[in-house]
Design a protein around this nucleic acid. Sequence first.
DNA 1: AGGGGCTACGAAGCACGATCGTAGCCAAGG
DNA 2: CCTTGGCTACGATCGTGCTTCGTAGCCCCT
Lengths: 118, 118
Amino acid sequence: MERLWSWDRPATVRDVLEDMTRRPPLAYTTVMTVMDNLHRKGLLLREKQGRAYLYRPTGSRESHTAELMGQAMVGASDRSGVLLRFVEQLSPEDLVALRELVADAGERPEADPQPPLA
Amino acid sequence: MERLWSWDRPATVRDVLEDMTRRPPLAYTTVMTVMDNLHRKGLLLREKQGRAYLYRPTGSRESHTAELMGQAMVGASDRSGVLLRFVEQLSPEDLVALRELVADAGERPEADPQPPLA
DNA sequence: AGGGGCTACGAAGCACGATCGTAGCCAAGG
DNA sequence: CCTTGGCTACGATCGTGCTTCGTAGCCCCT
């Protein structure tokens, strides 16, 4: 399913359908239903353009993954315990990245969350 | 389901069943099937004691949550991007805890992962 | 006005988990 | 020795959610 958001531009149902490579090609309505479900789940925004809808992701794939990670620890009583186990299983590269991130966070309380993306 | 691992001691099917409070009490076999599924999924260890099995959790609840969080970012291409979005949504308290954790990690390359728990 | 493309709605198939019943096993007690 | 009670193994049923798709209806363009 939603692994088709590699391209960062909005897409119509037909765009996605024609990009799909599948042994028996999926039906048009299948792709549409999936995108509609994603939209109902708040993962996709849509906007009417002519007679068709233009879909665009609500957030980046990274945001979504981070959202899932945060969701996994809601209701946890010992949050720092969870974080401890989490950093324990991180790779060294992840660890250095994380170290920089937690150091930066808080220094500039509010920086641009989304610079122009360049 | 598995919210019964608040107690840290191993338990038999009957222990769990008698601890359950549910409008229509669950059948004995229901609890057994659930615990067996958890065992098949590697979340529970079991050991025969007499004619019954003793079940104990494979890891702490914190380890399991951390495992899920790690699982959420497998296959992510931009891991530091994910971590960025993740720390962004953390509460200030979580942030200070995480800062300590990433600072400690690496200083003592291998400390006891499980001290006697005292 | 007609046709092509798009959406809305709902049905069928599939996978997974939860719930439970029945059958079989084994040890203890009469 | 045989019966009874507790436990496990196996499979049936049910509900839920996701996937796939077809049909019906709508609207713009020619």
